Computed example of a mutant assay.
Amino acid sequence: MSLVERLTDDMKTAMKSKDKFALTVIRMIRSELKYAEIDKGTPLNDDESFQILNKEMKKRRESVEDYTKADRPEEVEKLKREIEIIQSYLPEQLTEEEIEGIIDNTIAETGVSSKKEMGKLMSAVMPKLQGRADGKLVSQIVSNKLN
């Protein structure tokens, strides 16, 4: 089942169960995907859809930090619930050990050895981890490996 079909089914389920919060989040996801599809001019594949979902996750994680600093616990809780719903549509996230293994293999493939070449390594690693790992975490691990 494609991501769009799954979202449609879950939207119907949320309507039937009168889960307004989940319905709102699912509609937002569908809207973002539709905007991206219109911009592209052709239907999105699942990888492109996952990129959009990751972008939405990143926005909410940044907002959680901002609302935490502003001492707005009700907004933080709302955003965390949204993150959980969005996360349920993403592929299973890799553990730090799995990410490190992929990074080690990529270092061996590319021959990168210094921090100056971090961009080269990141551009080789990110396509392998797309949608399955947070870019901030990957960047942190790569930085540690190159030190």
Rank of each mutant, 00 (worst) to 15 (best):
M126P: 04
T42R: 15
M57P: 05
S114I: 13
A70S: 14
M57I: 07
V142N: 03
K55M: 07
R61H: 10
V76I: 11
K69V: 08
E75K: 15
T24V: 06
K78G: 01
G101S: 13
E109H: 09
I38A: 02
A36K: 14
E65I: 12
M28G: 15
E96A: 07
M57E: 07
T8N: 11
G41T: 04
E75Q: 10
L121V: 04
N144C: 15
E65Q: 11
V76E: 11
M1T: 13
E37S: 10
S17T: 15
Q93L: 09
S63P: 03
R30I: 15
L90M: 11
L90Q: 01
V64S: 00
I29Y: 00
T68R: 10
N45S: 08
E109N: 13
I86E: 00
I107S: 02
T95L: 02
E82L: 00
V4C: 09
L90I: 01
A108S: 08
I52Q: 04
K80A: 02
M57H: 06
I83V: 08
K20M: 07
K12I: 08
S2K: 08
A108N: 15
M11K: 05
L53G: 01
V112Q: 10
Q87V: 07
K145R: 12
Q51G: 12
T68I: 11
E48A: 05
E100H: 10
L23S: 01
L129D: 06
E77S: 08
L137F: 06
E32T: 03
A70L: 12
L94W: 01
G111R: 14
A70I: 05
D134Y: 03
I86V: 12
P73S: 04
S139I: 02
D71C: 07
I85E: 00
A22H: 04
Q87K: 05
R6P: 13
E100T: 06
K80N: 12
K69D: 05
L146S: 12
Q130R: 10
N45E: 10
G131H: 03
I103L: 06
Q51D: 14
E117K: 04
L79F: 12
K55R: 15
Q87H: 05
E96D: 07
N54E: 05
D104P: 14
I86M: 00
M57D: 06
L44A: 02
K40Q: 08
E65W: 07
S63L: 14
P43L: 09
E65Y: 15
Y35D: 09
P91S: 03
F50L: 13
V25L: 00
E92M: 14
K136P: 05
A108R: 12
V76M: 06
L129S: 06
M28L: 15
K40W: 04
A108H: 07
E32P: 00
K136H: 10
K80G: 01
I107W: 03
R81M: 09
S123Q: 06
S143P: 06
L129F: 10
K58W: 05
G131Q: 07
L146K: 14
T106F: 00
Y35I: 15
V4A: 14
M1D: 09
K128E: 13
N45H: 12
L90H: 01
E74M: 11
Q93V: 02
